[in-house]
């Protein structure tokens, strides 16, 4: 019952987002929405490795930038059409995850965060110093100025990412296996799980959608440079959104992305004289949320509900079933 209500709410939101451009013709609003949707995708992709697997990746932005640059280079230098280049952006990000994961996924906790951060800085420096990326001058893509196209492309892509991740992480065994790695890697081994393999799969699963979103971003914005796509911004913002929204869930990061992005947009659009204040408020908000709601907004909401429920009606399944010993109680999920 709970899941069907959730599905209904999601369907309504999706329908609203689909028909919205027919009602709202303001390009600014459309642009903000497109970027907001992109951030939802980036946050949930980040959460695959950070929340579900417990590896805080401070190099998430590198996947985004590599996706963006792959599309830029393939379109401008190899003259491939966008639809051919786009999946290759995902492939490039996946390869990066594979190569970067071999040394870094052996590390844990802060060491993993530091190593991935350093690696992403190295990639940014590389893009600044080689010819084919345009170095610090960046790269201009063939302009395709159709806000409606990008709005729908972003919406459909992020929708697809959400569905795939939801299936893999919440429906299939994969998500639970990742959580086992997060909770206790040594203990997971004894249960037949290969942590190296699972962490690598998780890292790649996090990288692919991020690379694809980077590609769409590049074509949409038409200009990329090392600081806008390979800088700290993507990683840092993803961390903030996921921690604030709630790690290890899909709805948490989505909620975090919406709130943080809305907050940021309002500040930049209407209160641009107080930019310094934006960072101060954001920092304070994060500190407060880490201290008072360590499970994030979504985690806190869900927990409060879970605590309230058993008092209303106790779990009916187990006691009689334990006596009959054969009967299997209907799953409570």
């Amino acid at each position: 019952m709970k899941t069907s209500r959730g599905a209904a709410i999601l369907a309504i939101i999706t329908a609203a987002l689909l028909i919205l451009p027919l009602v709202v013709h303001d390009t600014f609003v459309l642009r903000v929405l497109t970027e907001g949707i992109m951030w939802i995708g980036l946050a949930i992709a980040f959460d695959v490795i950070a929340g579900y697997t417990g590896y805080l990746n401070f190099g998430h932005g590198a996947f985004f930038g590599i996706g963006a640059y792959t599309i830029g280079i393939l379109m401008m230098q190899a003259h491939l059409p966008f639809w051919v280049a786009l999946p290759l952006g995902g492939v490039a990000a996946a390869l990066t995850a594979l190569i970067a994961g071999i040394p870094t996924l052996r590390l844990k906790g802060a060491y993993f965060a530091i190593a991935t951060w350093a690696l992403s800085r190295a990639i940014q420096q590389l893009a600044l110093n080689v010819e084919f990326t345009g170095g610090p001058d960046g790269m201009r893509l063939e302009a395709f100025l159709n806000p409606l196209f990008f709005y729908y492309l972003m919406l459909i892509t992020v929708g697809a990412i959400f569905l795939v991740l939801w299936y893999l992480l919440e429906r299939a065994p994969f998500g639970l296996k990742l959580k086992a790695i997060r909770e206790d890697e040594e203990g997971a081994k004894a249960l037949g799980l290969n942590p190296t393999m699972l962490k690598m799969q998780s890292f790649i699963l996090s990288a692919i959608p991020t690379g694809i979103l980077g590609g769409i971003y590049a074509y949409w914005i038409t200009f990329i440079d090392p600081s806008s796509t390979l800088g700290d911004l993507v990683s840092d913002q993803a961390v903030v959104m996921v921690v604030f929204g709630g790690m290890g869930t899909l709805f948490g990061p989505a909620l975090g992305a919406i709130l943080i992005f809305a907050f940021k947009t309002i500040f930049w659009a209407y209160l641009s004289d107080f930019q310094l204040l934006y960072l101060i408020i954001l920092g304070a908000l994060i500190a407060i949320s880490v201290i008072f709601i360590p499970n994030g907004l979504w985690g806190t909401l869900v927990k409060r509900k879970a605590v309230a429920r058993p008092q209303e009606k106790p779990e009916p399944a187990s006691e009689p079933a334990a006596l009959s010993a054969v009967a299997v109680p209907e799953e409570g999920n």
Binding site: L176, K177, R182, E183, G187, L191, G192, G248
Partner: peptide
């Protein structure tokens, strides 16, 4: 070594995946 953040059922289900690859 319990998976502390998960429920008891989830803890055991993870082990059951070895012989029962389908979640249900």
């Amino acid at each position: 070594k319990p998976f502390a953040g998960l429920t008891v059922l989830e803890n055991v289900t993870i082990a059951s995946f070895l012989k029962h690859p389908k979640k249900a």
